[in-house]
């Protein structure tokens, strides 16, 4: 069992490139044995954070601990226990995918040949092709197979599925769950919310280099409202008056409204008494959480657009 309670602990991390402040006091924790989702739009500082965690960039300020060590000074020791999948995977063009997998995996530690074979099958990757001929998705598979076939304690995955097709995303989900079951830790950066929602125990959302939200998925859900759509033959009498119901709209026999999380059971009970044809109550997805955080930014963009 690893000795550290937290695989990654970051507090107040700052990093500038010239006059550009990429990170402005970012906080992030990855508890040991858990999958932590790391969300943010392109350019918000996810990759910069990850590259600091790997000792590829030097932090300007803040405290960063990875597996109990300093990512910059203890890099070599730490890297024996870390597997990394970059967001944009470069490979050696004239080596085959299979060669690249072996090299990448063994650079940090031993390689489990059985898992390598299993992962190659699962991700349907032909290891005899030259990396030059691989698409972005296939290059990503190479890095994923290498990371998953290693025995690393911490997996750092930077947007690992951005080029994969959905069947591969299923294979990815399965593999990450196995990693988690083995007690290993995963930091998963993404902008595919469904993926994080499915896999992550905790989520950290960042924006412009600073953490804006962090917690378990359930904790974050409490922060917002469920959207309910009910198919009704009769009227929606009284629904709008119930506590916690907002923005009620009636359209062609469908009633839709938003409900505060705490009032949801009472409201649903009231709806059931109206004999509905259908009820859909969607818990807020991370996408909505995300839009809530970046909504003003999007509004600004759309304002110039339309």
């Amino acid at each position: 069992m690893p000795a550290h309670e937290m695989a990654v602990e970051i507090e107040g991390l700052t990093k500038s490139f010239g006059s550009v402040h990429a990170l402005r006091g970012l906080d992030l924790t990855v508890p040991t044995g858990q999958v932590t989702g790391f969300l943010g739009p392109n350019g918000s500082g996810k990759s910069t954070t990850i590259r600091i965690l790997l000792g590829l960039l030097r932090a300007d300020g803040g405290r960063t601990t990875v597996l109990g060590g300093d990512p910059w000074t203890d890099a070599v020791r730490l890297h024996r226990s870390i597997a990394y999948v970059p967001g944009d995977v470069s490979l050696w063009p004239n080596l085959t995918g299979g060669e690249a997998i072996d090299i990448l995996a063994r650079l940090s530690g031993p390689l489990d040949p059985a898992r390598r074979t299993l992962m190659l099958e699962r991700f349907e990757l032909d290891p005899t092709k030259k990396a030059r001929t691989y698409s972005k998705g296939n290059r990503q598979k190479v890095a994923l197979v290498a990371a998953l076939a290693s025995e690393a304690e911490l997996l750092v995955l930077d947007e690992p599925t951005s080029g994969l097709d959905p069947l591969m995303e299923a294979a990815f989900t399965e593999s990450i769950l196995e990693v988690k079951a083995a007690g290993r830790s995963v930091l998963l950066s993404s902008h595919i919310f469904a993926e994080v929602e499915r896999l992550a125990d905790r989520v950290t959302i960042i924006r412009e280099g600073a953490t804006v939200e962090a917690g378990t998925i359930a904790e974050l859900r409490h922060l917002t409202r469920s959207q309910v759509t009910v198919g009704l033959d009769g009227g929606a009498d009284g629904l709008s008056a119930l506590p916690g119901v907002h923005d009620l709209q009636v359209l062609d026999g469908h009633v839709s409204f938003a409900v505060d999380e705490v009032e949801l059971p009472a409201v649903l009970a009231a709806v059931a008494r109206l004999q509905p044809r259908s009820i859909v109550a969607n818990p807020p997805s991370l996408e909505e959480l995300f839009l809530r955080h970046y909504g003003d930014e999007l509004a600004a963009v759309n304002g110039t657009d339309r």
Partner: peptide
């Protein structure tokens, strides 16, 4: 970009 995965190894 191929340097980064190499340095992410134990070297």
């Amino acid at each position: 970009g191929i340097l980064e995965p190499q340095l992410a190894g134990a070297v």
